[in-house]
């Protein structure tokens, strides 16, 4: 059974049916023309066959141009829907997804962890920040009509809004080795109340925002604070060699070669694992690499922590 578990699902289905409809008409037109002509001009029929036409520019245009037009309509419609569903929008939850041969690991902002099961509240947009620990996987939610590959070493994201409660399928749709077809999971969409009580019932080590605290711990554990301030620029911390990380996430960073980039999850990850790849203007490349030292879960906690370093963070 396939469900329409988000608004997007319905829109995709509408587009799909519309294209099927148009293509159906074209196809049956072709079948009809083929049958009609080949029976009408069957060899033994007595019929006028004098001077068969060999070319006709008008005719050529009369089928090429409408075809082109129909194609363009398909394209625009599909692209529009795609743009809308991929737009970065404000979400109520950011969830880290880690794919690994052959399981899914989820980490909620509150620190709750799940394996092969993902609980979500209905009606709230959610953003998945996904990464793979080994080969490429693909997170496929057929009932939501979405899918996105998980790459090793780089985040990809997926945004969607469930509009139905229930249990829906998760498939891994990118071939990833022997047990690819066993790499399944469930999304469990609950009402807000149910979801909250589920969340409360999950073990959390300490009160408050677990991921945040964990992130703070990781930050000091690896000695990041030796070089990085976590307060606004104008607060003069004693001579630290690195830039302040206050308000870094989603800000514009000028690099030493003059390029300006937006600091997203991938940039932060790269800055920690390959610090010399993009050096901030005005700083010397002296940050050591932490590649292979910080495991994926700590990295996710760090990411949450980085995002919290701004005014008005809840």
């Amino acid at each position: 059974m396939i469900f329409e578990a988000s608004d997007l699902s319905r829109e995709v289905d509408t587009l799909f049916l519309a294209i099927i409809f148009v293509c159906g008409i074209v196809f049956f037109g072709i079948v009809a023309a083929m049958l009609y002509l080949s029976l009408k001009y069957k060899k033994d029929k007595l019929i006028d066959r004098s001077s068969p036409p060999l070319k006709n520019l008008k005719l050529e245009l009369s089928w090429t141009l409408p075809t082109l037009l129909i194609f363009l309509i398909f394209f625009v419609w599909g692209a529009q829907l795609y743009r809308n569903s991929h737009e970065d929008q404000a979400v109520s939850q950011e969830i880290f997804v880690t794919g690994k041969q052959w399981m899914w690991k989820f980490q909620h902002p509150g620190g709750q962890k799940e394996i092969d099961e993902l609980h979500l509240p209905v009606g709230e947009p959610v953003k998945l920040i996904m990464i793979s620990e080994d080969v490429i996987h693909s997170f496929f939610l057929p009932d939501f009509r979405i899918k996105q590959d998980l790459l090793p070493g780089r985040y990809t994201k997926l945004i969607f809004t469930p509009n139905k409660t229930g249990t829906f399928r998760i498939y891994c749709s990118q071939y990833c080795g022997a047990r690819h077809s066993y790499m399944l999971g469930k999304v469990i969409i609950q009402s807000k109340i149910e979801f909250d009580s589920w969340r409360e019932s999950r073990p959390v080590w300490s009160s408050g925002s677990q991921n945040l605290n964990a992130g703070q711990k990781v930050f000091t554990k690896y000695g990041c604070n030796a070089c990085h301030s976590i307060r606004p620029k104008d607060v003069l911390d004693e001579n630290l060699s690195g830039p302040t990380l206050w308000n870094l996430y989603q800000s514009k960073v000028t690099l030493h070669d003059g390029k300006v980039i937006t600091a997203d999850e991938n940039y932060i990850r790269e800055s920690i694992f390959h610090p010399n790849a993009k050096v901030v203007k005005g700083f010397s490349p002296q940050m050591p690499t932490f590649e292979g030292l910080i495991p994926e879960e700590e990295m996710q906690a760090l990411q949450t922590y980085m995002k919290s370093l701004r005014a008005g963070y809840p």
């Binding site: 829109e11 294209i19 099927i20 074209v26 072709i30 419609w77 057929p142 009509r145 979405i146």
Partner: peptide, 26 residues
């Protein structure tokens, strides 16, 4: 002609972004 056209028309469906996201690798 018949089968190629059907295959080609479904190729168009795959080329439509929002739909391919759903049916890719299926």
């Amino acid at each position: 002609i018949l089968l190629f056209t059907l295959g080609g028309l479904t190729g168009l469906i795959l080329a439509t972004l929002a739909i391919d996201v759903h049916v890719h690798d299926t």
